[in-house]
């Protein structure tokens, strides 16, 4: 039978066809090797990159963080939780691993990666809100930052749940970087040890020195425009952000269960939401219940009267500005400190 196939597919061809088959095979091999090499160069470079986008994952990969306390979350963690204040109050070494614009699964992927390369943290502050458990089938913002790490099984498995990468991204070299010239150039330069747009080490904290705009949605709207989204529909956006997803919920609970097993103290923290955004506060009961189930602690600041009625601490209803963030982090750190001391005393 094999002989038959050989006759059918090779020896029965005209010279023209043989030449074509040989050429196409050689060309494909050369193309594959070239793209594979380029992929290696870009990925290696991006794993060293210190631009805002790649900095945290680079440090994680280098195993240089080894923090006692890490902060997980989305933009609500990124702009609101200051590790320097936490350190000064708790006397430990903390780091903010927030991923802007992401729900829980990418945060978990980053955490799993962190655990592979760094020592176990003692405390985790997990910032939660209405969008934490949202569905992710359309991918997430800046997912390209995970592209250099898709060869790591823990990252790959979780990325598959996000819809950010397709089967070609995992299997064909360079496809995952397709249409990202800026990242490719950054990676190539970084491979040659040339760092462009190097970010200052702020331990993952990026406060916003902004005040409340005239239009409450303006903050989100301008952020969408920056990302090239023009068809702005706030209602749809809110709906998309608030719908809970069973896969996310499952992963969230697995994360809490694992932390419990590993004796990591977890604080689920719902940050302050301005009074105008009270209707967007969701899942509080769930977070409370789930914290109780997994021996974690739920701290709810969503309606905290110290901040939520004063617009001078916010730049939109969902996010504190730098002044609000300073007050909030201080209060959070003090509360955590009190809880830990209380637990020790008991």
């Amino acid at each position: 039978m094999l002989e038959g196939l050989r006759i059918l597919f090779i020896f029965n061809f005209e010279t023209n066809m043989k030449r074509f088959i040989v050429d196409i095979v050689i060309f494909s091999i050369i193309l594959y090797v070239v793209t594979l090499c380029l992929d290696k160069v870009v990925s290696t470079g991006l794993r060293r990159s210190e631009t805002t986008l790649f900095y945290n994952l680079t440090k994680i990969n280098q195993g240089k963080l080894n923090a006692d306390l890490i902060v997980n979350g989305s933009s609500k963690a990124l702009v609101q939780v200051d590790p320097f204040i936490i350190d000064s109050i708790l006397g430990i070494n903390s780091y903010n691993l927030a991923l802007d614009g992401t729900p829980f699964i990418p945060q978990k992927a980053q955490y799993e990666f962190y655990r592979l390369k760094n020592t176990k943290p003692k405390i985790i502050i997990q910032i939660v809100s209405n969008g934490t458990l949202r569905s992710l089938n359309k991918g997430f913002k800046n997912s390209i930052k995970f592209a250099p790490y898709l060869n790591i099984p823990e990252v790959k498995e979780l990325m598959k749940l996000t819809g950010s990468f397709n089967c070609l991204d995992y299997s064909v070299p360079m496809v995952k970087y397709s249409g990202k010239p800026f990242e490719i150039i950054t990676g190539m330069l970084s491979f040659l040890n040339v760092q462009i747009f190097k970010v200052q080490d702020s331990r993952g904290y990026f406060p916003k020195d902004k005040s409340w705009p005239t239009n409450a949605n303006e903050g989100i709207e301008s952020s969408l425009k920056e990302n090239g989204m023009t068809d702005f529909d706030y209602t749809q956006l809110v709906q998309e952000f608030t719908s809970s997803d069973s896969v996310s919920v499952q992963n969230f609970e697995r994360f809490l269960a694992k932390c419990e097993t590993e004796e990591i103290i977890v604080f689920l923290v719902y940050p302050p939401i301005h009074a105008e955004g009270f209707n967007t506060i969701l899942n509080v009961d769930y977070y409370n219940r789930i914290a109780h189930k997994y021996n974690a602690c739920f701290l709810d600041y969503s309606r905290d009267s110290l901040l939520v009625f004063n617009k001078k601490y916010f730049y939109n209803s969902q996010h504190l500005n730098v002044d609000g963030a300073t007050i909030f982090t201080k209060k959070l750190a003090e509360d955590i400190n009190a809880r830990i001391n209380n637990d020790l005393n008991n």
């Binding site: 060309f27 050369i30 193309l31 070239v34 793209t35 380029l38 360079m174 496809v175 970087y177 397709s178 249409g179 990202k180 010239p181 490719i184």
Partner: peptide
């Protein structure tokens, strides 16, 4: 010729639009 084809393919990959 082949180098130019490969360069063009890489260019398409790098600069692909949405």
């Amino acid at each position: 010729r082949w180098s130019l084809y490969i360069l063009l393919i890489l260019y398409i990959i790098v600069f692909a639009g949405g």
